[in-house]
Design a protein around this nucleic acid. Structure first.
Lengths: 250, 250
DNA sequence: GATGGCACCCCTGTATACAGAGAAGGGCCG
DNA sequence: CGGCCCTTCTCTGTATACAGGGGTGCCATC
């Protein structure tokens, strides 16, 4: 899974960023822990310069926090922080959907979206849904959300949606895998998929307010899932980054 | 104004970031232009390492764009981009106001906000408003918006509002100075100030939807001002970053 | 005269060396 | 025996050297 030795195709900086992100999200680096550059250098196999670049980028990404006296530490998130991040993502996605609706989109632009929806339909038709189907759903769902955001045709907005989705537990597909073993998993997916269809319908009919409201509510499905996951901490391996969420008891 | 030689109190990286930002916003570096590291090193007086760090941060900030073949260029913004950035800022500020209203704030938390409002009242009382008063307004307005955002008590949201306000023409106080010479300047300020009062009222009464709507509308005052400024390009020196906005004719 | 290829130069990405600051541990003094 | 200070070590921030790649300009050929 993880490319150990040098992918010469990509820069050392990108490799370092990817490796460090993995290290953080997998929980190998604990929240609050100061990240030792030298240790990271040794682990990753690049020199200090690209590692430092990667650290800066991860700070901007929100996974790291600068320490006043120098260096970086892994950021910790409260449950409230995560819920707010999800709400925020839903809000900016809602704005994107409203822009798309208000400005109008061609049926040609909607084609790939509808293709996504049909593929997802094919997945949720099976009952129960296989683990492989959940994996496919994650990919398709991410694609749908990306395409939907692009319908806004607003580079600044697309940029901010991407930023808001960068945190894994705030991303649209963050909680899909965690619910794969839950009893009402299929039910949740059917509801989410219905919301997908409704937002496309709203955009087609240029109903901006409706499209916006749906996307907000859509994000709240993820919020519900978060609560479930945090209550019974099984399957925490299915959500990278769960280790960053500090519980009240900690 | 610009600290030429080494402020040893702050790091070279921060100095480089500040200097580069000034260079970009003042228009010394033109949009689309590739930024030469060596030239920047010479201008700023730091070595390449902190300059490169600053470039990465400015890219994340949204002022620069990475060139696929390496290096960075100054980003160009269309009028639509700027309007969308303003709308986006209003939307996330609206979310912050809604959070504040829904979660409730103590009267103690509101005190500094109301202090701000009273000070602004003192400024807009004069007619016509002096240039110095406009400058004071800019500072007070920025403080009000910052305090308001903090009322949400949501670090992730505060972070995103800051990011959305980073672009100077998207910031809450971006267009205040440009309108200082316009005939209906005082009128605009009175309206903006009324919106300030209304949003505080909404938050006090825990009217989340109202607080959110007001902040969105409040941002659109800036959108109106943008159009005015772009139509008659006088006073472009009053808005740093105006050089980054490419007009259709360019 | 135009176009394609080659060579050169600059410029970025990477590695590493160095200096200063902060933290920790031990020793000394109260 | 405890607390404070000093020393030392490590780690970050900065500077610089080096190598690889891309772009440009010139020359040769068609």
């Amino acid at each position: 899974m993880v490319e150990r030795d040098s992918d010469r195709s990509v820069s050392q900086t990108v490799r370092a960023q990817l490796s460090l992100r993995d290290l953080i999200l997998s929980g190998d680096l604990r929240p609050g822990e100061r990240i030792s550059e030298l240790q990271a250098v040794e682990t990753i196999g690049a020199s200090r310069t690209p590692v430092r670049m990667a650290l800066v980028r991860l700070e901007e990404e929100g996974l790291l926090e600068a320490i006043p006296s120098g260096g970086f530490m892994v950021k910790a998130f409260s449950e409230r922080d995560v819920l707010d991040s999800i709400e925020l993502r839903g809000t900016v996605e809602g704005l994107a959907a409203r822009f798309a609706a208000e400005r109008g989109v061609s049926s040609r632009d909607l084609e790939p979206l509808k293709g996504c929806l049909d593929e997802i339909d094919g997945l949720v038709r099976q009952d129960p849904i296989s683990v492989e189907a959940f994996s496919s759903y994650v990919a398709l769902n991410a694609r749908f959300h990306a395409l939907l955001t692009e319908l806004s045709r607003s580079p600044p907005l697309i940029r901010q949606v991407d930023r808001a989705s960068a945190l894994p537990f705030a991303s649209p597909s963050g909680f899909v895998m965690t619910q794969s073993t839950l009893p009402n998993a299929r039910h949740t997916l059917l509801i989410a998929q219905d919301q997908h269809r409704v937002v496309i319908d709203a955009i087609e009919n240029r109903e901006g307010a409706r499209a916006e409201a749906i996307m907000r509510e859509h994000a709240r499905v993820a919020a519900r899932n978060l609560r479930v996951v945090l209550r019974n901490k099984t399957h925490s391996d299915l959500l990278p980054g769960l280790a960053l969420i500090k519980m009240p008891g900690d």
